[in-house]
């Protein structure tokens, strides 16, 4: 999985590309462990080809940590495959989900 990062309006925009499963989830987790906790983040999931329960687990963990440090985690651009998993697991109730990265990166 490829992780790219840029900044818009004091939000860190993390774009993920590839598969977010048990083998790639630790990479995303360690990426966030290395970044400052108080920074709000938008994760762009447009190019995520597959996400499983481990991937969802990491996203839930990141959301919790951000909430604890008074920052926010927003998700944007969920493609149909990712949306399906969020729908099945009803994980959408845990996240702020936007259809556009720029709109998500507004305080």
């Amino acid at each position: 999985m490829t992780i790219t990062e840029k900044n818009i309006n004091n939000f860190a925009i993390i774009s993920l590309q590839g598969i977010l499963n048990a083998s790639s989830a630790p990479k995303l987790k360690s990426h966030f462990e290395q970044s400052p906790e108080g920074v709000s983040v938008v994760i762009d999931l447009e190019k995520v080809e597959f996400i499983d329960s481990s991937g969802l687990g990491v996203l839930v963990g990141i959301a919790r940590k951000k909430k604890a440090s008074s920052a926010v985690l927003k998700l944007a651009n969920l493609n149909d495959r990712v949306k399906k998993v969020f729908e099945i697991t009803q994980a959408y109730t845990l996240f702020d989900i936007y259809d556009d990265v720029t709109a998500a990166a507004i305080e």
Binding site: S53, L56, G57, V60, I88, T89, A91, L94
Partner: peptide, 19 residues
């Protein structure tokens, strides 16, 4: 999957595999 029981996270895992 050894997730803590009776939490929303465990529901996510349960649903994921049920489907």
């Amino acid at each position: 999957e050894d997730w803590p029981q009776n939490t929303f996270d465990s529901d996510i895992v349960d649903h994921y595999y049920a489907v």
